[in-house]
Write a protein that binds this DNA or RNA. Structure first.
Lengths: 345, 345
DNA sequence: TTGTAGGCGTTATCAC
DNA sequence: GTGATAACGCCTACAA
């Protein structure tokens, strides 16, 4: 009569069953239920069956927050990407999406939640707070872009983090990415091969990975003193903005470029469109090299020469490195194979 | 000497400060700290300052799990998308990505976490479990694809959910999407206008939204009894797979199509590439209409006629509808403006 | 305006 | 093998 919380063996329909309820109905103690649910070998097959049956029939679901409070892990990883520069047709390339897919898969396998671009991560405090409040056990940042300084600080706080982007051995954090500098060199070598002299680099050197590509290009250029490199610094990643900028460039430049190295295949497409409006056609008038080797690049007219990076394994690799960081070790940065894919342009 | 948990006013460096610690050091009670942190107006400016100062200097961060356990909300939304069919160049269009960006932004504003494609959501039990265990307060599903039946069941469990995809008033769930049937009709009308008679539909009718487009196309076709529609049923969403299938189709078909309606702009590009290899050129030999109006479509050679849907607002709209569902009301499905964008093909 | 007491639902630690 | 008990860190009464 004067029983504690419930006086019958079935739950009132208004409230969800808790572990207590399952325990009571299955006539075992709460810890036993917990043991069953976490697959402990310390329970007899008999009670295990009984508990599971009751849990199922009561529609019991363990409260993840209670669990996470007790265990000291969030079992969640925050994946940070700069959606800001990806709105309104600004998607650099579907490429990032593939990366995300790979990460999602790799995290699923490990039973880790994927927290996508939580807010507040534009300052260190944001990172620290999310980490300390146990919102995420670690971070995967896709593209350091212009925020390398911020990421360096985060890394120095000993917050587990891996970054997709430019690999720099001097960096405080572990990064995985293509060999951007090599990519630039490969593009430059192709231009040299085709006797191109007036090169145009399209992209914002504020982005670390893109700056490296530019340096690679410069390095190749040094092999022939006639070569001059001009830069079309992209302000917005939006397709049409790039298109317009490229168009304006061609109209005002004194000498038309005979080679273009664009920071992405999508940007390359924008350039092709803009230049062709002015009668400047690739591959006739200029060579063109893109980046990422997205599928449509192969079937564009003309098909686009580009730099391929191994995105297939990248997601899994990032996650693997992060797991190492979670285990307290310091994963090493890695550069993925980077190749020139030669096509019509 | 015999004090409770700590005998000094500073924390041992090994453990993170808790609300208790902050309270003690600031010489207030725990609830007061809680009040300060949640911005309650019931605290004097004086103590508020003091508490905040201590919290800051102690590097205090509130434990989200404890908070979520107490409040009965997860403050998280699960966003489900079928990464499976998006791997290895299978990205339908960067389009889904824009949607995701919009959703991410709208959730950020409301301080809700975005759980991306948690595992186990291929069965109802998965949905129910995640929901009951308070992992997510609601679900946003991007593209019902071939799993309409599953989603119907989820909806009947009274789990808050909104879906991007085909809008069907008879459906148990709230959906937001373009007017797929209208899109199909618009494509068909364009074909009629250009006196095209042998139409080819490219896409898998297993997907609800794509099936509707096909129906719209059929409807237009009925206006002229000479028209025949053939279907190239896509097995994989991979760019190169579509390319190869289209190529094989053209080689074996008895009559070449003079009109093609593709389920995405990216697929349209694949078709253009495949057909041109066989000397079948658009717009000379056939009309072509894609879907989504992704930026590169406008600058492709030739520029692609397509169906535009308003993705800009879609993300925000989905979130808004879901919020309504969370408030216990039943949001209405909505169809976004859907238009034909006429270009060279 | 502030403090005291209690409980959210789980897991860890110890007994038995 | 199983059970009692005590945290985990926060918030919501209610009382002062």
């Amino acid at each position: 009569m004067a029983q504690k919380s419930s006086d019958t063996t079935t739950m009132p329909r208004t409230t969800r069953p808790t572990m207590d309820d399952v325990a009571r109905i299955a006539k075992v103690s709460k810890p036993t239920v917990s043991r069953v649910l976490s697959g402990s070998p310390l329970v007899s097959a008999d009670t295990r069956e009984r508990v599971l049956a009751v849990a199922r029939e009561q529609g019991y679901a363990l409260n993840r927050h209670a669990q996470k409070l007790r265990r000291e892990r969030a079992n969640a990883i925050a994946v940070v990407l700069d959606f800001g520069s990806h709105r309104q047709g600004a998607i650099g390339d579907p490429f990032i999406f593939e990366l995300l897919a790979g990460i999602s898969e790799a995290l699923s396998v490990r039973d880790l939640d994927l927290l996508l671009s939580p807010s507040g991560l534009d300052t260190i405090d944001g990172f620290v707070d999310l980490y300390q409040s146990r919102g995420a056990d670690g971070f995967i940042v896709l593209g350091q872009g212009a925020r390398d300084a911020l990421l360096q600080k985060v890394a120095r706080k000993d917050i587990p983090m891996v970054v997709w982007g430019a690999v720099n051995e001097a960096s405080a954090y572990c990064a995985v990415g293509s060999d951007n500098s090599l990519g630039g060199r490969l593009a430059g070598e192709r231009f040299l091969l085709h006797d191109r002299r007036r090169w145009l680099f399209v992209g914002s050197r504020q982005h670390e990975e893109i700056r490296l590509r530019f340096e690679g290009l410069q390095e190749a250029a040094r092999k022939n003193s006639d070569v001059e490199i001009d830069v079309l610094s992209i302000e917005s990643m939006a397709f049409s903005a790039i298109h317009d900028q490229a168009n304006a460039y061609l109209k005002t430049c004194t000498v038309r470029p005979d080679a273009v190295f664009a920071f992405s295949d999508t940007a390359a497409m924008a350039v092709i469109g803009a230049f062709s409006k002015e009668g400047h056609l690739t591959p006739r008038d200029y060579s063109l090299v893109g980046y990422n080797d997205i599928p449509p690049a192969a079937h564009f007219t003309p098909s686009i020469t580009t730099i391929a990076q191994q995105t297939g394994v990248a997601g899994a690799l990032l996650v693997e490195k992060l797991m190492q960081a979670l285990d307290g070790s310091r994963p090493r940065s890695a550069m993925l194979p980077t190749q020139l894919v030669t096509r019509q342009t």
